[in-house]
């Protein structure tokens, strides 16, 4: 029980990271982006490439950091992956979504995002193959915190949770303490008014994609670090990430963070109340519950 709670928090941290950018993009551009979760896979695979590259170039970087299975090469690759994924997200927007935005409405974009997701996922398959891949062959062992009840935790889990929370904190500070953050929030709340006030909308859109892409890449790498890489990994997170945004209320960054943890913990605890086969439907049940009880989410504002 406590173990499940703990594990749920970790999955939740990854879902939260993925949901932050999605909720902003969905709010600002007003469409449900089905390709968004693929950014996690892009990030994880970019990190894989650079991890291998750095390891080959600088053998010293192969040393693991403390008790983690993360080594210096992967830590550096994570930074590269965040930047690269952010840039890809901007590029995808420029290439596809912006054009469709200009010609058609948001619902066309929803479907376009279906198509983009399919293309991205299969491009990754084409390049990296269907095989599951790993950053490190070594299995990192868990530390026993308590024997009765049995509670186990892996150093990697602690690191991932800490790193995810740190990233969220940084983003929170940017959002609440900087001019850029104010501009971002202004645009999200009222694009037209913000433009009148002199905020460049297109720059803000790019910024949202950049931030969302970077956070998703981190989520992807963290996931792959504690599990493995597969071309479908992003797709597998799609429903949990959507559920997190709905729980938090579309547009609310803090709501997305909280929603991510709620979805993660609920999925972790799901096994206590339902047979394991039904667990994939858990995020959907959460969505249903929110729609029944509080349709606009925990932090969402009323809008039709």
């Amino acid at each position: 029980m406590i173990q499940n709670l703990l594990d749920g928090v970790l999955t939740g941290a990854i879902v939260s990271l993925g949901a932050i950018g999605l909720t902003m993009a969905m709010h600002m551009l007003r469409f449900a982006n089905f390709s968004y979760a693929e950014l996690m896979a892009i990030g994880a695979y970019v990190a894989l490439v650079f991890d291998r590259l750095f390891e080959a170039l600088i053998p010293a970087a192969r040393a693991a950091i403390g008790p983690l299975s993360l080594n210096w090469a992967l830590a550096a690759a994570l930074v590269v992956a965040m930047a690269a994924t952010g840039l890809s997200a901007v590029a995808i927007d420029r290439l596809v979504f912006r054009r469709i935005r200009q010609r058609a409405g948001p619902l066309s974009m929803v479907f376009a995002s279906f198509g983009v997701a399919l293309i991205l996922r299969n491009l990754i398959t084409l390049i990296f193959g269907l095989k599951a891949q790993l950053y490190s062959q070594e299995i990192a062992f868990a530390v026993i915190l308590s024997r009765d009840p049995l509670i186990l935790i892996k150093p990697d889990q602690v690191f991932v949770l800490a790193a995810a929370l740190a990233l969220m904190l940084i983003f929170h500070l940017v959002l609440t303490r900087t001019t850029f953050g104010f501009a971002l929030r202004a645009v999200a709340e009222n694009p037209a008014l913000a433009q009148v006030a002199g905020v460049r909308l297109s720059a803000m859109v790019a910024a949202v994609w950049m931030i969302g892409g970077a956070l998703s890449a981190a989520a992807g790498v963290f996931y792959a670090l504690t599990n493995h890489l597969a071309p479908t990994m992003g797709h597998n997170f799609l429903l949990p990430v959507f559920a997190a945004t709905i729980v938090g209320g579309i547009g609310s960054v803090h709501g997305a963070v909280l929603g991510g943890f709620i979805v993660g913990i609920a999925s972790g605890l799901a096994l206590q109340i339902m047979p394991s086969g039904y667990v994939p439907a858990m995020p959907f049940l959460i969505i249903l519950a929110v729609l029944l009880l509080r349709p606009h989410g925990l932090f969402g504002e009323e809008q039709a």
Binding site: L107, L239, A243, P275, P283, F284, I287, L288
Partner: peptide, 27 residues
């Protein structure tokens, strides 16, 4: 549940219905 809300909710909820439906048929 969803048609009163903005359109994203319908898109996401229906996507979720499909996942849940598959889950029921499988289990």
């Amino acid at each position: 549940l969803t048609l009163r809300l903005r359109h994203d909710y319908l898109a996401i909820a229906t996507f979720g219905v499909a996942v849940a439906f598959e889950s029921v048929t499988r289990n």
